[in-house]
Amino acid sequence: MTTSSAMRAAGQPGAAAAATRSPASGSQAIGSRITAAGVIKRYGSFLAADGVSLDIQPGEFVTLLGPSGSGKTTLLNLIAGFQKPDGGAILVDGKPIDRVPTHRRGFGMVFQSYALFPNMTVTQNVAFPLRMAGIDRATSERRVAETLEMMRLSEHAAKTPAEMSGGQQQRVAIARAIVMRPRVILMDEPLSALDRRLRESIQIEIRDLHRTLGSTFLFVTHDQGEALAMSDRIAVMDAGRVVQIGTPTDVYRHPVNRFVAAFVGESNLIEAEILQRRGTTVTLKNRSGQVFEAESRDQIDLGRVAVLVRPERIAVSAEPGPGAMPATVRSALFLGEIQRIEAELESGERVLIRCADTAGRRLPDPGATIWVSWGSEDCWVLS
């Protein structure tokens, strides 16, 4: 495969992806373009990467999202150079890198295990890549000081890893990865060992860091919340393939199939029959005979389909109204800012509802009848 044909095979991101990139004022993208074109990786008869094509633009933040065994870490390792592909091509700025050893690719790397040198101070850990690259002492000291300040680690400069919390150690690992100001930074589930609050805090720091540096970030996670919060685009992987790539909004609101709908966020899948189509609006009838409308971009033939309705898009009322369906409450939980209600429609299908806890909203009792509804813009026909 030629370089030009490999890049065409990987495709281009949409304008919406470019619009989501918002580097900090005064910064500019210094990152490299990464192209994976028809990449294959086999382990015996198992295809860990099954013809993966992906095009990441300079300075973009792309997340590989998927369950264990989906191929996301395999693809990251192939790009990093830890493994060699059995087919296809990987290019950086249009040049094949398959034969370039890992240490010469110039990527910054952050892993789940911090991999810090226990006998070195924070300063020494961060300075290590500069020392290996033969950077002079004055430049190294200045660069390390800038990086520690950026990662809010200056006051910990003389500590060893054993004297620091998990979150602080992860900041050191990130500082070491960025101290050379690499054009590409690879992160393999770097936050999975942290507690929820700390993880959310460092998510914001990584996102701000991306805007400041302008490097290309490729981030691997199985946590859909992380992917939605941090990414310019998300590549959802399953069985060694990219099944959908798009902005967080598009992947969440307009999944291409049931797998993406179920994996990215909580979902209700309502079985229904298409009665009519007008433009992008489809009229459907569910199993108990209620008629409602949904949106669809695809030309779908008349027949039975699954309709995605996100739990937060379902409106709840104690009284019947236009287009509302009766449902029996099976469980109701108060979770602070939201109420989480599971109810059963007349068709026998269960729906999950997440509604804001507002003044005067009473938590319904199990067995009570409520009325649920949603608009055509709140649900999506899956092809």
Rank of each mutant, 00 (worst) to 15 (best):
E163L: 04
F292C: 06
T121I: 10
V256G: 06
G11W: 04
A368Y: 00
R361F: 13
P23S: 01
Y43S: 00
I300C: 06
I353D: 09
V282F: 10
G44W: 06
S32N: 11
D357P: 00
G94C: 06
I338V: 11
R277D: 02
G321C: 04
A235I: 10
V282Q: 13
L382V: 09
I270Q: 04
R152Q: 15
T249F: 13
G66A: 14
Q12K: 07
I174D: 06
L213T: 08
P96K: 09
E141S: 15
A239E: 14
Y43A: 00
R258A: 15
F107N: 01
G225Q: 12
G31H: 10
L284A: 05
A262Q: 13
N125P: 08
R104K: 15
L228M: 15
A157G: 01
R207G: 01
D301R: 11
K159I: 00
A127I: 03
I202M: 08
G303A: 06
G44C: 05
P248I: 12
E226G: 13
N286R: 04
P67T: 11
G134M: 09
E141I: 05
V307T: 03
A318P: 08
R181W: 03
M150G: 02
I185G: 02
L213C: 09
A193M: 04
A16M: 10
Q339G: 07
G26Q: 09
E189L: 07
W371T: 03
E146K: 13
S45R: 15
G81R: 00
H222S: 14
M164F: 05
T283D: 10
T20I: 07
G31N: 07
E377A: 14
G31D: 13
F117R: 01
P161G: 10
S331G: 02
A10D: 11
V100C: 01
D86R: 01
Q12P: 00
S331I: 00
S215C: 07
P118K: 06
N77A: 00
S5D: 12
M230L: 12
A29N: 14
R197M: 08
L116T: 04
V39A: 05
A239D: 08
Q299L: 12
A318G: 10
I370T: 07
V243C: 06
E377F: 02
I135M: 13
